[in-house]
Design a protein around this nucleic acid. Structure first.
Lengths: 212, 212
DNA sequence: GCAATGATGTAAAAGCCGTTCACATGAGCT
DNA sequence: AGCTCATGTGAACGGCTTTTACATCATTGC
């Protein structure tokens, strides 16, 4: 370990933790100026190293972004899974909570969200990224499974389709209305309420209305 | 008009149509490399002028992008309006056609779509842009109005909410599944079918099922 | 006809970024 | 102590954005 720092707290030659420092800087910069405004050079500056140093830890700028997105998907999956809470206390309510968690994540972690969905990374940026993204979707998938099981067997919708629809609604609302500092469009209701209404109507259409 | 060209077809000093040429070049470049990969300098090169020339026609790079996005919204509104066709032959079927037109536009005009929704333009990029975008949404709004009127007065959903939901579903599916050369995620069905199913279930939930 | 004028283009320059390369430094192992 | 590898530096290249001073030309008023 080289945690050596001189008297004034400035590290000497070797940083000791540059990889993490760069990721932290990237999160700050993305939150502040969007994924497009994020700059490798500026992250290096924030970490107090030269512009070439980051290349010892990331192949290029996109690799850093992909790493941030990957961590984002992991946290995202956790957040959704926590909201789902194995369908407690009741699957339909828990399903709704998952939708709210989706929006909450988009708002409370704008940097991660931007890296995940707005950085326009090449789809094959890294195997880990696709793995993490798949894992996050799997949470939705499992929740849909349980919700669909509520329907009588002869009218049971495919769980995969339901999970894709849920993802679509949450993502659509997050993209259109829950990003940007002041929500780029004026709405007569909060994004959360808009999503909850959509999910309710959708479940009603499946014959899974909470009143049923 | 200065359409003067010399013997080899090279224009002389004044281009004569640079503004349009730049927009055309921008569309090509965005289609090819995404809105992030689009470059003011390269558009200038494609038009055969120096790198500084575009500044006579656009305040900066974002202004060109905003102009492209603006035209995109105008075409988009036309496409949606044409699909809606004033609710003919039947409002529910026409509503569905609007959704398909949304996806069709995202796929057939990837450059416009990218400038409109993926360029991350500052929300207040230009008044014209917001006007054009509002006009496109107004088409959805009017269609929702007619569809909602099909419901009995005491169970009539707010048309604004229905139009926002429709926008959400179409946009969510377009963003997640209908972009990128080969659709970044594998689906068990086409995006069009996925959207149609969602709209059908949603309308069913509103008590507006086609079977009703 | 023709000169003044404003619109439209150019070249050059400053400043930023991403990326690479040769080289410097120092941590850990023998 | 000395070797070696990981990690950081500085300089350099090419490309991009944007500004500035200057060039060219179409139009317009006389």
């Amino acid at each position: 370990m080289s945690w050596s720092k001189d008297a004034r707290g400035r590290r000497s030659y070797h940083h000791g933790n540059l990889r993490e420092a760069l990721i932290a800087a990237a999160l700050d910069l993305i939150a502040e100026k969007g994924p497009a405004g994020f700059t490798f050079a500026e992250a290096a500056r924030a970490a107090g190293v030269s512009a070439a140093a980051p290349y010892r830890h990331f192949r290029d700028r996109d690799a850093l972004l992909a790493d941030v997105a990957c961590r984002g998907f992991e946290r995202f999956a956790e957040a959704l899974d926590h909201a789902w809470d194995e369908g407690r206390p009741e699957p339909l309510a828990a399903f709704d909570a998952v939708g709210r968690a989706y929006l909450a994540f988009a708002r409370s972690e704008p940097a991660y969200y931007a890296a995940m969905f707005e950085a326009q990374l090449p789809p094959d940026a890294s195997p880990e990224l696709t793995r993490a993204s798949d894992a996050a979707f799997a949470v939705l998938r499992r929740a849909a499974e349980v919700v669909c099981a509520l329907a009588p067997a002869d009218r049971r919708p495919p769980a995969l389709m339901v999970s894709l629809h849920m993802w679509t609604m949450a993502h659509g609302i997050a993209s259109l209305f829950a990003r940007g500092d002041a929500a780029r469009r004026k709405l007569p209701m909060t994004p959360e309420d808009l999503l909850e209404a959509a999910v309710l109507i959708y479940l009603q259409g499946l014959g899974l209305g909470p009143a049923a």
